[in-house]
């Protein structure tokens, strides 16, 4: 097994940071976009772990399709402008 490269450590730290941001960022839209990039980086991780099958599946399903699902749900949920304001207010109320 090859020694740990700086790349692996960087990738792992970025993954953890992104995961935290997905859950902690204020804006739901931003969270979803971060989640998609999280999935993309995860696919990179699969390549590093010599699992090209998983990299393909993760990029297409785990990141791409799931991301599209989240974005479309977000659009349905937020709907018009009035609702968007409501979402912001709720967010602050929490």
């Amino acid at each position: 097994m090859t020694a740990v490269g700086a790349f692996d450590i960087l990738l792992c730290l970025t993954l953890i940071w992104l995961a935290w941001q997905v859950l902690a960022s204020r804006d739901p839209f931003r969270a979803v976009v971060l989640f998609i990039s999280f999935g993309m980086l995860m696919a990179l991780g699969w390549v590093r772990l010599q699992a090209p099958d998983l990299a393909l599946a993760e990029a297409a399903i785990g990141s791409g399709l799931t991301g599209a699902l989240f974005l479309s749900a977000l659009r349905k949920v937020i709907g018009g402008k009035k609702d968007e304001r409501r979402l912001d207010r709720d967010e602050e109320a929490q």
Partner: peptide, 29 residues
Amino acid sequence: YLLWAGSDRAGGAFQAGAILGGAGVLLLL
């Protein structure tokens, strides 16, 4: 291609299905 390649390289039904699904999503968009 992935479907065909799956028998001896990376790829297979899921990856192929995922890509096809992606194409479908794009059309739906």
